[in-house]
Amino acid sequence: MMEIASVSFPEVFILLGFSERPSLEPILFIFVLGIYVVSVLGNGIIIVVSCVDVHLHTPMYFFLVNLSFLDISFSTSIVPQFLINLWGPQKAISYGGCVIQFYISHWLGATECVLLAVMAYDRYAAICRPLHYTAIMHPKLCCSLAFASWLGGLTTSVVGSTLTMLLRIDHFFSEMPLIMQLACVDTSSNEVEMYVASFIFVVLPLGLNLVSYSRIAWAVLKIRSAEGWRKAFNTCSSHVAVVALFYGSILFMYLQPARRNSHEEGKLVALFYAVVTPMLNPLIYTLRNKTVKKALRHIVLGNCGFGGTHIFKNLSLVRRKQI
């Protein structure tokens, strides 16, 4: 039984998480901690390499730096509290901590939806408009698109995250669809708001991704050489994999019926996109990207200096190599 503050706000929320399976919690703790460390290190390496190596001062890696920083922030807003709950018998989060986690996680989640659409447009410009790529993806536009992604995500979080907070949440972090499933009051207006926000920041960016890649596919089909097909595939494959992982999990969470009784299934999907996906993103981009691996080797061997601070330096040279 929880105590209620004089202003009718709960002092703490109960996050049951996976407490119904106590034998699973130590294994999950080690698993999640390992993934979190790899995620932070992997995304941190991408940020450092992209900023240090002048050959990576291009729009593609500028947006990748934003994505890596976003993934670190998103994981950090959720995983430490989750690990605390797994480690000990206390399965609670303070009201203030829950509100902060709620707003930050939804801000970053919405930002990633828009950012992935922006990155798809960048790949469209690189493949379909190679001769005009430098003029199209100029630094001011790239900075504006990145800023719009972060601002748009913040706006929808501020507007859409004003919900009734419950005393008992059968989950391991504050998740909007789940809160509405467990609410004891009428949530019709909240559901409408959630679906509108989901359309604007999930479905619409996904549609932009699909449009961009349909145009890319049409352009690739016109390529006659196998070498051209290979280059186009290498240019887009990493981003396509990240988009598939991200949207495959988030669409399940946010577009399922609000009253669906699937808490355990929802926990596993949420665990995947909150913990596993941020770790996979840097692995996907580094394992399939020879430029990043080469830059990383140079840094490790001490052959790459810090010369040049502008992220778009030598853009035309690197564009020719990529396209």
Rank of each mutant, 00 (worst) to 15 (best):
T134Q: 12
A197G: 12
L255V: 04
M60N: 13
V211Y: 15
T164G: 09
V54W: 03
W107Y: 07
M165W: 05
P177H: 05
T291M: 14
E193R: 14
V242H: 03
P130E: 06
C236Y: 06
L208K: 01
V203Y: 06
L283M: 14
S161A: 07
M165N: 03
G307W: 02
A226M: 15
Y213V: 01
H298D: 11
D122G: 10
K321P: 03
F272K: 05
G207N: 07
V318S: 13
Y36M: 15
L206F: 15
R259E: 11
D170I: 09
K140C: 04
L67F: 04
L251A: 03
V196R: 14
S77G: 01
V243I: 15
S214F: 09
V300G: 05
R230V: 05
T58H: 15
D53S: 12
V40C: 12
I311K: 01
F172E: 01
F31G: 05
L251S: 05
G266E: 11
A217D: 09
V158L: 14
S157R: 03
M165C: 05
K91F: 00
S77I: 06
A226S: 12
W229H: 15
I200K: 05
A244Q: 09
K321S: 12
E175I: 03
T134A: 15
A92S: 06
I284P: 11
L221C: 14
M165S: 01
Y273M: 03
Y195A: 09
G88W: 08
V32Y: 14
K231T: 07
Y61A: 00
G266Q: 09
F63H: 05
C113H: 07
S214V: 05
G228V: 08
V65W: 00
S23K: 14
L115G: 03
Y61S: 00
Y254K: 07
F312S: 00
G42F: 02
N190L: 06
G308W: 00
N314Q: 13
H239K: 01
L163Q: 10
G302T: 01
H310G: 00
H239Y: 08
Y36E: 15
L83Q: 05
T286E: 02
S23I: 12
I311N: 01
G88N: 14
S188L: 11
H106T: 08
V114A: 10
Q90D: 13
T277A: 14
R230L: 08
L16D: 10
L154S: 04
Y273H: 15
I4V: 10
V114N: 05
A117K: 02
G266N: 13
A135H: 13
S94G: 12
L271H: 04
I72R: 00
I45K: 00
I78E: 00
Y273G: 03
H132S: 15
P10S: 04
G34M: 09
G305V: 00
S6K: 07
V12A: 08
V114R: 06
K267N: 02
